[in-house]
Design a binder for these strands. Structure first.
Lengths: 168, 168
DNA sequence: GTCAGTGCAAATAATTTGCAGTCTT
DNA sequence: AAGACTGCAAATTATTTGCACTGAC
């Protein structure tokens, strides 16, 4: 018990981000409601790329009774304004990230755990604005898929692994 | 009307893939049911990275009455066996791809349209197996996010664009 | 004071599950 | 024949919406 994982971002960072966040809200004309601040803070504190539901739980620790709809709406609005990001997932459940700096995600296919990483080889990769005709590039979302140690050992069914049929 | 978009993969490819698919099923001990073949074919024909629901519709064109559950289950099993892929999405809806070759996806944030692309700069990027301690890298999922021409022109709300608060 | 934003409850997706029957191997 | 797989219906989970009210600006 007493999990090792540091699921929380350092308080100093969080504090700085929250300040920047409030400023950004003002700039964009988003109102500074307690709920909005609580949702942002909950997300900023959590490095695990939580689902909306997980954010809800966290928010409720300090604001019991907040309805899911509020959290969904807030996450939506913050994402629309570019104050947080939705991260790519394959399991059909949206996950969020308050970290807007360029970084990649390492995702375990089995347990879904998602952690931040900076792959040097990818740090420099840019997709020049004109590379893709008829498309305005805004951002790159890179996910490194595989299995974490905990899950790599666990056997699944018939000979798994890199067994891909490569066609074409 | 009469949309230009070639939403179908060339019949030659599809045929070849289907053959390889049946072989792969045999190898892995997956039963060769009409439903399974139909689902795979539907996905192979469709280059738009359809949702499970879209696959269902397509399958029903030739097999009316197939229940959603079957399609979901089949897509699941094929993904587990590495015969198709789930692609990363941010909207919380799973999408699938029968193309297992290394390629990237260009995704419009607004309309969600997703098209294949091969970015030269990314073709060579590998994440060496030992790069990430305690993690077995299996695959890289790269998404290029932005807006397609159709959506780039459409105005949204207050000054959008690259307006990100870059913290940390 | 105004209207963006909230709370609540109900609606709509999206996906999964249980179980009995069927068809592939 | 055995059990993997399907069909159907119901259950769950994820997310959205309508509407009246409230609080931030």
């Amino acid at each position: 018990m007493n999990r090792v994982t540091s699921r929380s971002r350092p308080a100093v960072h969080v504090a700085r981000w929250c300040t920047a966040f409030e400023r950004a809200c003002r700039v964009r004309g988003l109102r500074r409601t307690p709920q909005r601040l609580a949702v942002y803070r909950a997300l900023a504190e959590d490095v695990s790329h939580p689902t909306a539901d997980a954010v809800l739980s966290r928010v409720r620790e300090t604001m019991p009774g907040v309805p899911p709809a509020s959290v969904y709406r807030i996450l939506d609005s913050l994402e629309r304004e570019g104050l947080i990001r939705r991260v790519g997932t394959t399991d059909g459940i949206a996950r969020y990230d308050a970290n807007l700096t360029r970084h990649q995600h390492v995702v375990c296919r089995r347990c879904g755990r998602m952690t931040d990483l900076q792959v040097p080889a990818l740090a420099s990769v840019r997709v020049a604005p004109r590379t893709i005709p008829g498309f305005v590039v805004e951002e790159l979302d890179v996910r490194i898929l595989g299995r974490c140690v905990r899950c790599a050992s666990g056997r699944s069914r018939r000979g798994r692994g890199r067994t891909h049929v490569v066609n074409e």
